[in-house]
């Protein structure tokens, strides 16, 4: 309770008394230096996290198209392929980066639009680097593996392309020793012997590699023997795997033998 003597004191005296009584001392310079650096660090981290989200976003934007085979309406599968998780992450981390920069010593002087634009540009540029180096690929694969609500693009490919009776197949190429027989192992582990038609451009066959995931358009030759005529093929390997591409073009010297019989089929690409 304030006494009458307290009331007669000036504010200055009261403040000094409180400082003395509580042995209050100014916080150290280091505290403020660390706090300001911490803000910048958090802003930087938010930009990096935003960039990771953007790299994954680019990855999906690039790879969703090929995953959807022709002849089917793109919706709703294309909506499933939209990386909602990453869009939310980009928004959240973008906002955090903006907030942290604003909390720095002179950050408030920047206009909202300037800060948001700078944050988006920084995250975007770094996101492109992450995508090009394969970080987006790894992130998306990991998310597809561990996050149940994250649509797996491989699952979309499988759902879309595994319909042999409708003339579509998906699977991994298994080369035989003679290099003339091509086996396609579909996601249900059925091995299809593929016969390639002359309608397939040489470059596409030239790029075929052991283990490569491809989509095939054609028709069943013999359902019991699991033989399939391929009129066209599309690589379903993901783009954006980084510095080491899984399949280098031009490695195969001899193209597989081919047969005629797909003149009426519309090419995939």
């Amino acid at each position: 309770m304030a006494t009458s003597m307290d009331n007669q004191k000036t504010i200055s005296e009261k403040v000094l008394n409180r400082i003395m009584d509580a042995k209050t001392a100014p916080r150290s310079r280091l505290y403020f230096m660390l706090r300001n650096s911490g803000m910048w660090l958090l802003a930087f981290l938010s930009i990096v996290l935003g960039a990771l989200a953007i790299s994954s976003f680019i990855f999906r934007a690039v790879n969703t198209g090929p995953a959807l085979r022709p002849g089917l309406p793109p919706i709703p599968e294309i909506l499933l392929a939209v990386p909602f998780l990453w869009i939310i992450c980009i928004a959240v981390f973008g906002y955090l980066a903006y907030r942290e920069v604003r909390s720095t010593r002179r950050g408030y002087r920047y206009e909202l639009t300037t800060l948001l634009l700078a944050t988006i540009l920084a995250s975007g540029a770094l996101g492109i680097v992450f995508y090009a180096t394969g970080v987006g690929f790894m992130l998306d694969r990991a998310a597809a593996h561990y996050l149940p609500f994250h649509t797996d693009l491989e699952r979309v490919q499988r759902d879309r392309w595994l319909a042999p009776r409708e003339g579509f197949l998906v699977g991994a190429v298994r080369l035989q020793e003679d290099e003339d027989t091509y086996i396609l192992q579909d996601p249900e582990d059925i091995e299809w012997t593929i016969t390639f038609a002359t309608t397939i451009p040489d470059e596409k066959l030239d790029r075929l590699e052991e283990g490569q995931r491809i989509g095939v358009e054609g028709e069943i030759l013999d359902i019991e023997a699991h033989t399939f005529l391929a009129c066209d093929i599309r690589s379903l390997e993901f783009e954006g795997r980084g510095f080491v591409p899984p399949h280098t073009p031009g490695e195969r010297k001899n193209l597989p033998p081919r047969t005629n019989g797909c003149e009426d089929v519309r090419p995939l690409d």
Partner: peptide
Amino acid sequence: IEDLLQEIFLKVYQNLNGFDQS
């Protein structure tokens, strides 16, 4: 107002090292 002023000046004192000279 007096109470508030005291709090303000105490806060100022505690943060003197954080005063941006610019």
